[in-house]
Simulated scan of single mutants.
Amino acid sequence: MKVVKLEDILGTEKEVEGGNWVSRRLISKKDGMGYSVNDTIIRAGTETHIWYQNHLEAVYCIEGHAEVVTLSDNKVHTIKAGTLYALDEHDEHLLRGIEDARMVCVFNPPLSGREIHDENGVYPADLD
């Protein structure tokens, strides 16, 4: 069994700074679970272009307020505590922090742990 405490990740290489967000990598590829789990803060007043061409992601908001705009149809989805959204079709989108928003993010395939978005909003397929 693995027990991970957020307090043990803060300030380590598992806390990844992305400018508009900071992501604490709780479970990564090396843990061998077949998925990864992040505790991520989306900063208020930011907008991030994301297009996970190599990953599927489920995001559960536990604090704050954000918006997701799906670029295929320009639909705006309000995200608040208690809301989950799943990028099940590699959806290209904009993520807007209305307030600081805390999200629990699950990725398949798992992230190695150090990924940041490239110029197209993509995480690389594998950083091993």
Rank of each mutant, 00 (worst) to 15 (best):
P109V: 08
G19L: 11
E7M: 06
M33Q: 09
P124C: 11
E47T: 12
I79H: 02
S36Q: 07
R25T: 02
T40D: 01
T78Y: 01
Y85G: 00
E15W: 03
K14H: 10
G121A: 12
Y123V: 06
D39K: 00
G32T: 04
D126T: 07
D31C: 01
H93K: 13
K14M: 09
F107Q: 04
G113A: 04
V76R: 07
G34T: 12
I9P: 00
S36D: 06
D126R: 10
L111R: 12
H93L: 06
E15C: 02
G34L: 05
V3P: 00
S112D: 15
R114Q: 15
T83M: 05
Y60R: 03
H49W: 01
E7R: 13
V106P: 00
N54Y: 12
K5L: 06
V4M: 03
F107I: 05
I41M: 10
H65C: 11
V76H: 02
E17H: 13
E67Y: 08
W51D: 13
T70L: 14
C61D: 05
A81F: 04
H93W: 00
G19P: 09
D8P: 03
K30G: 02
L127K: 12
E67L: 05
E89S: 15
E7C: 05
I41D: 03
H65T: 12
G45C: 07
G113R: 00
R24N: 14
N20T: 15
S28T: 14
S72M: 06
V68W: 01
S23Y: 05
L10D: 07
S72P: 00
P109Q: 10
H65G: 00
N108Q: 14
E17K: 14
S72Y: 11
S23T: 13
V68E: 00
Q53I: 15
D128T: 12
N54H: 15
I42K: 04
M103T: 05
V3R: 03
E47G: 02
E63M: 10
I116V: 15
N54G: 05
W51M: 06
A101K: 02
K2D: 03
T12N: 06
Y52W: 10
I62N: 01
N108E: 10
N20M: 06
M103L: 15
E99C: 02
L26Q: 05
L56Y: 12
N38C: 14
L10M: 11
T83V: 11
S23G: 15
N20G: 13
N54T: 08
D88G: 14
T70E: 10
K30E: 07
L56E: 15
A81W: 04
D31F: 00
R96P: 01
V68R: 06
H49T: 08
S72H: 13
G45H: 07
V59I: 14
S23D: 09
